[in-house]
Design a protein around this nucleic acid. Structure first.
Lengths: 341, 341
DNA sequence: GTGTGTATCCGAAACATTTCGGATCGTCTT
DNA sequence: AAGACGATCCGAAATGTTTCGGATACACAC
């Protein structure tokens, strides 16, 4: 079965302590015996029992990531890309990643209590923060290392390590882009109220309008569930109730793609009759028909950098700054249509 | 810090054993004291230390999945979708998933030795099998539970639980589809030789030709690295050296998309001048321009079913059958072009 | 009064490792 | 020759659980 230190010790004629210290490369064991012990360990095919090591040393070299229950959508690449960024960076630092999916009907905190309270990870990566996010409160109360893709809503401090796109600036740019193309009646599909970045995006929308002296009209703003279906429903509602609208800004690509579908469902052509813009630049955005104008958010890079930061936090290394705000990049594609004047 | 059984025991005035058995729901503890102990555990916010539990019980309730080093491509959805299927199904059975990325330059088996030999998981999910796959040999020698997305090459037995698409039949259908559209000079872009499913796909290609009485021409067959770039290079080579070719079958979607790019690079129109087909039906296939004709492989479902099987294997439950061969589905899109006669 | 049975509880070992605080022994200094 | 010192090794505790094999006490039957 398992080869243990004890077996090696018996075979080598040394104590378990010495074997452990030999394999650990400590200086208080004779180089000759170290070689000898390593030889035997090799011969027996010794692999340290990581569970025992973790229990004793209270370190797991593992990063936790919990996929929210709402993300059962096949097409939502956000978490997939994030996981990839995290996993590859973790591997570079000899960390593994524990991924847990939240069950749809389960209490959101259950998985966190189990994984974090159960000592299975050294740190957590959070994403998709809410207003008054209980996960952040929990992790902070435990003083457990964590980093966040996203940040708190504008009315709360984000006094934890995070990386977020500056979505206020991003959405403002997108709105301005539409305005310079001649649009004045621009609809907005927001995420649900309880998502932390929703107010930032609404502010960006208003910034864009204000910059051009266009009045803000609350009836142009609706909410969607961040999935394709939600965007479709929201856009259909806008098209019905506000037929003067010629452009729609959706707060993520999935909803934008849904909006384009709704536009087609109304016998209109996205990009020609109604301009559409999204946010994220998931792979599907480029391949959509028409290709989607969007605000690019470098998800993979965010995953990479977050992991680097998390590992520093775990190691108690000081951070230069606690939060990073990335400048988002406007990617203009066919769904913008042509300038109208 | 950590609330332990010992603390609860002291507070409740019972032994650690009784506390453990009370919380575990054993029948040899008085219902009254069980209630009492549970109350105290709740008050203290007790969360069992899973590491300690794992060490003692030699069970982790964790499934391992190692992402190969070659999959650093952002667009390769295969592993992302697989991870999602595995993770969600695992969660339904109260399992977590340990994801580890293989470093590009590292020995392939290192991660397996560490994760499996280190007792971190109860079972493994493998994907992308090779001819003479050392991972399979290793896991079998340890008698460690595992399941495989894919199977052994045709010259070896697949005497382990697996799920694979019947790629021989799939590719044959695709070739036949092209032949009925009037193509007789059909190129094939195969994966590298050491991938286990390569010979199945070659056989399928030959089956398709034989069924229509078209001779097999080895010069129409080239290899690519399964990434977009590899498909591009392979197709470029085919177009140069065999200009009579009017259709190209690529063995995965990523290479097919690359082939379409090469066709465009040669001033030809994929779907109109040269028909193209792929394999997998990753999300990008539908969104490609032109949309890609392909053989659908239900990756998410494969991940789900594999996980169900793995959990059975771990629990020592008997399996109905050891291997499942899925009938692939031909999805005809624009890259097939129109029938030519 | 003795034996049997049942309900309830607990001590101690075991899982495999790391690490603290010595112990031993030979060499060197004075 | 005594003490100091460095090199090398090791016993035992500790990490937090689970579980085996009893132990205790009480009720009941004979």
């Amino acid at each position: 079965m398992q080869v243990t230190l004890k077996e090696i010790a018996e075979k080598a004629g040394f104590s378990v302590t010495t074997v452990s210290r030999a394999l650990g490369g400590f200086s208080d064991v004779n180089e000759k015996t170290r070689q000898y012990i390593m030889q035997i360990a090799d011969d027996l095919g010794y692999q340290p029992n990581l569970i025992a090591r973790q229990l004793r040393s209270q370190r797991t070299y593992t990063i936790g990531l919990i996929i929210p229950a709402t993300t059962h959508n096949f097409e939502d690449d956000f978490f997939s890309v994030l996981i990839r960024g995290v996993t590859h960076t973790a591997a570079r630092h000899q960390y593994d990643v524990l991924v847990s999916a939240q069950l749809p009907q389960a209490n959101e905190m259950d998985a966190y209590h189990r994984i974090v309270g159960g000592n299975r990870v050294d740190g957590m990566v959070l994403a998709r923060t809410y207003h008054d996010d209980p996960r952040i409160a929990y992790l902070r109360s435990l003083n457990h290392p964590f980093v966040v893709a996203g940040r708190s809503a504008p009315d709360q401090v984000s006094d934890f390590p995070y990386i977020d796109a500056d979505s206020r600036v991003g959405i403002a740019e997108l709105v301005t882009h539409f305005i310079t193309y001649g649009h004045t009646h621009i609809g907005l599909i927001l995420p649900p109220e309880n998502i932390a970045f929703t107010p930032y995006r609404l502010e960006g929308y208003r910034d864009g309008l204000v910059g051009a002296g266009i009045p803000y009209r609350p009836e142009y703003v609706v909410h969607g569930d961040m999935k394709q279906r939600g965007g479709e429903n929201a856009a259909a509602y806008l098209l019905e109730s506000q037929p003067q609208i010629t452009a729609i800004v959706a707060c993520n690509d999935l909803m934008a793609i849904g909006a384009m579908r709704a536009i087609q469902g109304h016998g209109l052509r996205p990009g020609l009759d109604i301009a559409v813009g999204g946010f994220d630049d998931i792979p599907a955005a480029k391949h959509a028909a028409p290709a989607l104008t969007t605000i690019r958010q470098p998800i993979y890079t965010i995953g990479e950098q977050l992991t680097e930061i998390l590992i520093k936090v775990i190691a108690n290394e000081p951070l230069e700054k606690t939060g990073i705000l990335l400048k988002p990049e406007l990617v203009i594609r066919e769904s913008s249509g042509q300038p109208r004047r």
